[in-house]
Simulated assay, not measured.
Amino acid sequence: MAWMAWTWPTAIFFIIIACILTVFTVLAIKYPETPRKGVLRIETTRGDRLFITLLGSAFINLAWLGVIGANQPFALLVCLVYAAAVFRWV
């Protein structure tokens, strides 16, 4: 890991993202999905909702870091609630 000066948390983050993408690929192959409309009245698939979740979670973490500065594990809890809401209602 020294060739890119990665830290273990960074490596774990990217490993988790790769695992999520793998699971979503398997789900898309095994259980094809038709787009559905949610609260935003746009058609989204699982992949769209995953992208919205990841992008929103990045902004939540950046805002948390800028406003509060510490206790990032609490930001993770906010992100999990946000992800549940996106996958349920968007």
Rank of each mutant, 00 (worst) to 15 (best):
Val86Phe: 00
Ile52Gly: 01
Ala85Gly: 04
Leu55Asn: 03
Thr22Gly: 14
Leu76Trp: 04
Thr45Gly: 08
Ala83Arg: 10
Asn61Gly: 13
Thr25Asn: 05
Trp6Asp: 11
Ile60Tyr: 03
Val26Leu: 14
Ala18Leu: 12
Ile29Leu: 07
Phe74Ala: 12
Arg36Lys: 15
Pro73Cys: 09
Val90Cys: 11
Trp64Phe: 04
Phe87Glu: 01
Gly69His: 08
Trp89Asp: 13
Val81Lys: 04
Phe74Gly: 10
Glu33Thr: 12
Val86Asp: 00
Arg49Trp: 00
Val78His: 08
Val78Thr: 10
Thr25Glu: 10
Lys30Asn: 09
Leu55Thr: 09
Val39Tyr: 07
Asn61Lys: 10
Arg41Cys: 08
Phe24Ser: 01
Thr53Val: 11
Thr25Ser: 08
Ile16His: 12
Ala83Glu: 01
Asn71Phe: 13
Cys19Leu: 14
Phe59Arg: 04
Ala58Cys: 12
Val26Lys: 13
Ala70Ile: 14
Leu62Glu: 00
Pro9Thr: 13
Ala85Met: 13
Leu55Trp: 12
Thr10Ser: 10
Ala70Glu: 12
Ala28Pro: 00
Gly66Ser: 13
Asp48Val: 10
Leu77Lys: 06
Leu77Met: 13
Cys19Ala: 11
Pro32Gly: 07
Ala5Trp: 13
Ala83His: 03
Phe13Glu: 09
Pro32Cys: 06
Pro9Gln: 13
Ile52Cys: 07
Phe87Ile: 01
Arg46His: 06
Ala2Tyr: 07
Pro9Trp: 04
Tyr31Asp: 05
Ala85Asp: 05
Phe13Gly: 01
Ile60Phe: 06
Trp64His: 03
Cys79Glu: 00
Ala2Lys: 11
Leu21Ile: 09
Trp8Gly: 01
Arg49Pro: 01
Ala70Ser: 12
Tyr31Pro: 00
